[in-house]
Structures are given as C-alpha cells and as structure tokens.
Amino acid sequence: MSQWSLIKLELDRSAKYPLGSVSRAYFIRAPLDETGLIDNMRLSREPQSAAVRRFWPSQHDLSGYIVKSTSGWYFRDADAAGPDEWFASILDASITAGSVLEITERDGTVSTFRVAEITPF
C-alpha cells in the first residue's frame, strides 16, 4: 500500500554549485509505494492531494500538479491555460532518502537534485 509523503528535493552538487544549494528546491506531495515509486493508481484517485512547488531565491515560486507522462511525471503549472503547459519533469524513478533525481526544466536544462527528506503523512 502506498503512503502519501512530502518529499523535499535540494539541488545537488554541480559545476555551478559545488556544494549544492538548499535554497533551490522542490517540495512534492505524492503517494509513494513500498519501492519509492509514485503510485499512479492512488494519485489518479486523489489528484487534488498531489502537488509540487519549486522555489528559487532569484525567481518567483512555481506551483502546480503532478501529471503522468509516458516516461515519468510532468509538473504542470497551476495557472496554466492548457494541459501541455508544464515547468519541469522527472523520469519514473525510485524516490528514497539520499537518492538523486534528474529534473528537466521546460527550457531543456537538466539538473540533479538530492532527496533531502521524505515525511509520510
């Protein structure tokens, strides 16, 4: 059985950010199964419970919804006019504490984020 969780992703180390950055992060609220994958069946039954927020110190926050794609998940802008308006995506991968995920921004920029915290609720 999956568990709804609040997941905090922090920017991992890179050439531009050799120490990473806790101020560049995503908060994701999603149901995770026992292997750490987002549970699509549960999410489809309770889509209003799932959400994502991106915060950067130099830009306004982005908030939205999680939508399944063929290879993973899109983070769709809450203020989007159409269903194809998204601000980031991740591949379908296990989300466990300390693991890393690649997030692709709409402009094609790919950044690595570390799973800093998972809090079940």
Score class of each variant (00 low, 15 high):
residue 53 R to Q: 13
residue 105 E to V: 03
residue 42 R to L: 12
residue 77 D to T: 06
residue 26 Y to I: 09
residue 73 W to A: 00
residue 15 A to K: 14
residue 110 V to T: 12
residue 38 I to P: 00
residue 67 V to F: 01
residue 17 Y to L: 06
residue 61 D to V: 07
residue 9 L to R: 07
residue 27 F to Q: 11
residue 86 W to S: 12
residue 48 Q to S: 14
residue 64 G to V: 03
residue 29 R to D: 02
residue 104 T to S: 13
residue 101 L to A: 11
residue 118 I to L: 12
residue 66 I to E: 00
residue 75 F to R: 00
residue 113 F to T: 10
residue 77 D to S: 08
residue 7 I to M: 09
residue 43 L to D: 00
residue 30 A to H: 02
residue 84 D to C: 07
residue 8 K to G: 00
residue 82 G to F: 04
residue 28 I to N: 03
residue 67 V to K: 03
residue 8 K to A: 05
residue 49 S to P: 00
residue 12 D to K: 10
residue 96 T to L: 15
residue 80 A to C: 09
residue 64 G to A: 04
residue 37 L to Q: 04
residue 6 L to G: 00
residue 77 D to R: 05
residue 119 T to C: 08
residue 117 E to L: 14
residue 88 A to G: 15
residue 62 L to G: 03
residue 32 L to N: 01
residue 50 A to E: 01
residue 60 H to I: 11
residue 111 S to W: 05
residue 23 S to K: 15
residue 88 A to E: 08
residue 89 S to F: 02
residue 3 Q to F: 02
residue 37 L to E: 02
residue 54 R to Q: 10
residue 110 V to F: 01
residue 52 V to E: 01
residue 8 K to C: 06
residue 78 A to R: 05
residue 61 D to M: 09
residue 87 F to A: 10
residue 61 D to H: 10
residue 91 L to I: 07
residue 21 S to A: 15
residue 26 Y to C: 07
residue 53 R to G: 02
residue 115 V to P: 04
residue 17 Y to Q: 05
residue 97 A to E: 12
residue 9 L to W: 08
residue 91 L to R: 14
residue 1 M to R: 05
residue 107 D to M: 06
residue 69 S to Q: 09
residue 116 A to S: 15
residue 16 K to Q: 12
residue 68 K to L: 06
residue 65 Y to L: 06
residue 88 A to D: 12
residue 73 W to Y: 14
residue 38 I to M: 02
residue 105 E to A: 14
residue 92 D to I: 02
residue 14 S to E: 08
residue 41 M to H: 07
residue 77 D to I: 02
residue 60 H to Y: 10
residue 84 D to E: 11
residue 41 M to R: 09
residue 63 S to D: 10
residue 48 Q to G: 13
residue 31 P to T: 05
residue 96 T to P: 11
residue 25 A to S: 14
residue 113 F to M: 13
residue 117 E to S: 15
residue 33 D to E: 08
residue 95 I to S: 12
residue 111 S to R: 12
